[in-house]
Design a protein around this nucleic acid. Structure first.
Lengths: 252, 252
DNA sequence: GATCATAGTCGTCTGCCTGACGATAAACAC
DNA sequence: GTGTTTATCGTCAGGCAGACGACTATGATC
């Protein structure tokens, strides 16, 4: 049967990005302000149309670079400096999710170390890192007492799914290192876990666990006191992808 | 900005299904024979276009019902007889994955108990349950010595991803019960794990583990000897979704 | 410079879970 | 009855995690 355009309805396909980082002990996501309807002026996840000749992962990497300047981490290269982890999250295709037309969005999850202020088309006022709880509380009030509008489209759901993916994935993978600079201390890594999970972890047990997991951390030989206190050893992420046994998220 | 069709390239959106079941101690997937080009006569995963007014999950449930007669298991109803588990798997959008046009496929994963012979538009010769190793061995020879053509499109990759999802997910969730009939014995559940993972498990440790995990199994009071040997207690799936601690897949 | 606060690192102990495996129980086939 | 099959209970040793004590090495403060 030859190509018959009437045989299927046309869709627009976009990629949306959940870009997570840890700033000042809290898990933050990148949000951009919409400059046009629908939801003009509201915060949304960054994203855009997939181009005609582009793979989905390429489109996501392109959007990520446009919004943050980050290069996507090539999964075939285990350790790469200053590259964000990028993976496909899920696809959202409710017929009414975009009031203009039928749009299917392939959401991606990116994890990045703490970065300088974001840029959205060079306009800093239209992009920001916001704590995920703030973005997810629908119709509440932000830290400054100002009313908070929920994210545009179904982006609150997408963000929630991305956060949950990140929370569960750092349990059994070494992905938490994607939130850290190329060299980091055990304490810094622990604060990543604490921020992402929103819990306090015992520094001694955490230290024993991560240093005892083969392939997770590789000492670089250096030390730092950038966190104050006694100098701490610096590590790089090791080659291990999966943690066995996993880091257990404390129960409630 | 009004709806501007020139602002984005049009895509076709399909759903493809990885339908898994356990038959005769091996993990099998549903395959259908393609009746038209491209890949005419080759085996492929069942699937089809998403309709204009349909959600992605609805489209997947519709395709599943068309191919197998199964109703999709509503996730909000924890226990439902004879309903298959259905979840979104991943989305595949390589520009060249379909030679005819730009098609983005949202793959879904379905887990079903052992079923009578499948039907594909009523034609049994065009649908079958095949062991996943047989479908995944590219260009090899099947059990009957006949050469095996690889699956159409990128369906081998999709199937491999679905199998890996199932293998890892039964570790930390109660999803293995989706492969079982409404009432089943501990031994039947163990044989599911053994088929999906391709390993042998110790019956005594397995029994201790699953009966000791709260909420996993609920005794129905009945017994059965349908597997031969001493009568075994019958269980239903309990309300628990996540297993804590997880079932550990044996190393190597 | 003594003291304090802050982080980091090493140990210990106890309880739980797992893997290995022995032993018993209840059906069916002959 | 004897053997075979499957189910179920128990035991034991090793490993890992949570709770927590102790000590170390910095910078900050008086």
């Amino acid at each position: 049967m030859p190509y018959d355009p009437s045989a299927f309805p046309p869709f627009a396909v976009t990629v949306d990005l959940v870009v997570l980082t840890v700033r000042r002990h809290s898990l933050c996501a990148l949000a951009v302000r919409r400059g046009e309807p629908p939801f003009q002026g509201r915060w949304a996840l960054p994203g855009g149309f997939v181009r005609a000749d582009e793979d989905l992962a390429q489109a996501a990497a392109r959007e990520l670079a446009e919004e943050t300047g980050l290069r996507a981490h090539d999964p075939s290269v285990p350790v790469q400096d200053n590259g964000a982890h990028l993976e496909q999250l899920a696809t959202y295709g409710d017929p009414k999710r975009d009031p203009r037309m039928r749009v299917v969005s392939v959401a991606h999850l990116a994890l990045a170390p703490d970065l300088p202020a974001p840029r959205a088309g060079g306009d800093a006022s239209n992009a920001r890192w916001a704590p995920v709880e703030e973005l997810l509380q629908q119709g509440g009030y932000g830290r400054d007492g100002e009313p908070v509008a929920p994210l545009a489209f179904d982006h609150a759901q997408i963000l929630a799914d991305g956060v949950e993916r990140a929370r569960s994935k750092i349990e059994y993978s070494s992905l938490a290192t994607a939130f850290c600079p190329p060299e980091f201390t055990v304490g810094e890594l622990r604060r990543v876990y604490e921020a992402v999970w929103g819990v306090a972890l015992d520094p001694r047990n955490f230290h024993r666990k991560v240093t005892g997991t083969p392939g997770f951390l590789v000492p670089t030989g250096g030390t730092t006191t950038r966190q104050g206190g006694r100098p701490a050893q610096l590590f790089r992420a090791g080659g291990a992808t999966y943690l066995n046994p996993p880091m257990l998220r404390p129960e409630v």
